[in-house]
Every structure is written in structure tokens, then in C-alpha cells.
């Protein structure tokens, strides 16, 4: 196993409020790590720092040994670090089919200066890949629907579908199951895991549902007020006294 993501001593303040305070997290390839913590604990800030949206005040982040602090979201993505969002970031004015077509074309254009202004967006290559994602995430039924017309849960699937579209090396999912009906959450996570089964992606996912966390996480990183409170196997982390007091609320 090699270290897919290694963050050391990350700190970030917003107007004097410490959103991250010496955060260190390391994830190996193939590992499934859950980030938990109350709202405002610094989970999303951590994801934003890794993916180049927010630059940490201090600290270092490496992916497979390469320093990524200071890179733009675009550059970070091109290194194979993909993310999904708490509120799905998709193209609401386009159909599901068009959404995935744009995504496929975008990721296959990383080596080119720009997408082709002549080659049809929906060509045999992109169509095959779009169909594969549709099938994997069971979205085929809605392929010609505008995304503004489909349910929040479907949008979430589409958002995650886009994040997993190009064999990510590191995948960061920000609350993948929020907005998904509770009885569908396990199915949802199964779909995500299946989509990644032939890859050795390091997966970090923010989650509030402890049933999901226990079932899918190899390891838990607990955030509290910008710090890492615990970083351990699920049973051990969740049994920790301060975690129970501050985070899971079962002291």
C-alpha cells in the first residue's frame, strides 16, 4: 500500500475563526475513510483544502508524494483527486445524458489543450462510457430528463457519478447520502462502492449516519472544532470518550 493522500499540520482561519487547526490525515490507496463530526467541525474545509478550493494558511498536502498545496481545483483534479459535493454540483439546465457527456468529454480532454469544436459531443466513444455510467448508477430511465426535473437523490447519484467517472486515485465524497431517503442509503453506498470496485481509490467520505459509517468505513477520522479528535478503526474511534461526548452525543 502506498500513501494516496497525506495532509500534515493543516490550519486555516476565516476571519479569526479556526476552521482547521493542525489537521493531519493520511490515507492509503484502497482505504475507505469516513470523516465525521458536528456541523462546523472542519470536515468540508478539509475537503476544500485538499481539492484546491481553499488554500491552507500552513501545512502540507501530498498525493503519492507530490505536493498539491497551491494547485487550483483544475490541477488537483487532473492529478486524479475527484470530489462530490454536499449540494450536488451538476448542470441543471442540461439533461442527464448531456451532463454525463460533458463530464466524459471533460475528463478525456485532460491531455489536450481544449475540447474539440468539431467532434460531436456524443460520439461512439463517449456514448459507450455514458451508457456504462448510466447503467452502473441506474440512471438510464431518466437519461433525457433535465436535471432540474429529477429528484435530489438522483442528482446526488449524478454528482457522485461524475466524481467517479475517471477512475479517481483519491475520491472525496461530501455527505454522499444526505438527501437520499434513509431506506435507500445502503443501496446508494453499495452503488458507489461497486463503481469503485475495480480501482484502488482512496476514498474519504463525510457522513453523519453512524450505521453507514460502521458498515463502510475501514477507519474514522473524527473532527471537532477544527482539530482531529480521533483517527482509528470505527469501533475504537466511536468508543473513545470525548468522541461520544462531543460528536455522537451518547455520553
Amino acid at each position: 500500500m502506498s500513501i494516496a493522500l497525506n495532509a500534515q499540520g493543516l490550519s486555516k482561519s476565516f476571519n479569526g475563526i479556526k476552521a482547521a487547526d493542525g489537521v493531519s490525515v493520511s490515507v492509503a490507496d484502497g482505504e475507505f475513510v469516513s470523516l465525521i463530526g458536528a456541523n462546523g467541525a472542519g470536515k468540508t474545509t478539509f475537503i476544500n483544502m485538499v481539492t484546491g478550493y481553499v488554500r491552507p494558511d500552513v501545512g502540507s498536502i501530498t498525493s503519492y508524494g507530490r505536493e498539491i498545496v497551491g494547485l487550483s481545483p483544475l490541477q488537483v483534479t487532473r492529478l486524479g483527486i475527484y470530489r462530490s459535493f454536499q449540494i450536488p454540483q451538476v448542470f441543471t439546465g442540461l439533461t442527464l445524458m448531456e451532463n454525463l457527456t460533458v463530464a466524459i468529454n471533460a475528463v478525456t480532454a485532460h491531455e489536450r489543450p481544449l475540447l474539440s469544436p468539431r467532434k460531436a459531443a456524443l460520439n461512439p466513444d463517449s456514448r459507450d462510457r455514458v451508457d456504462a455510467v448510466m447503467e452502473r448508477f441506474q440512471l438510464g430511465k431518466y437519461r433525457d430528463h433535465l436535471v432540474s426535473e429529477i429528484s435530489g437523490g438522483m442528482r446526488k447519484l449524478l454528482d457522485v457519478g461524475m466524481a467517479t467517472i475517471n477512475s479517481p486515485k483519491v475520491l472525496m465524497l461530501d455527505e454522499p447520502t444526505s438527501g437520499v431517503a434513509s431506506e435507500e442509503k445502503f443501496d446508494f453506498m453499495d452503488l458507489v462502492i461497486e463503481a469503485l470496485s475495480d480501482q484502488k481509490a482512496a476514498v474519504l467520505f463525510v457522513e453523519h449516519d453512524m450505521d453507514i459509517v460502521r458498515r463502510y468505513a475501514d477507519r474514522i477520522v473524527v473532527f471537532h472544532e477544527g482539530r482531529v479528535l480521533a483517527d482509528d478503526r470505527p469501533d475504537a474511534a466511536l468508543a473513545q470518550e470525548d468522541v461520544r461526548r462531543y460528536v455522537t452525543g451518547k455520553a
Partner: peptide
């Protein structure tokens, strides 16, 4: 074309496009 469809996507969501590496 690929680029023509991506232009429509720019109107909808620039953040997602950047996070697709475009």
C-alpha cells in the same frame, strides 16, 4: 461538438467543470 456542449455547461455550473479538470 464537445466544446459546444461544454459551453452550455459553463452557464450552469463552472465549479463542476473545474472539478472535472476542464
Amino acid at each position: 461538438s464537445e466544446l459546444g456542449l461544454a459551453a452550455l455547461a459553463v452557464r450552469d455550473n463552472e465549479i463542476r467543470l473545474e472539478y472535472l479538470g476542464l
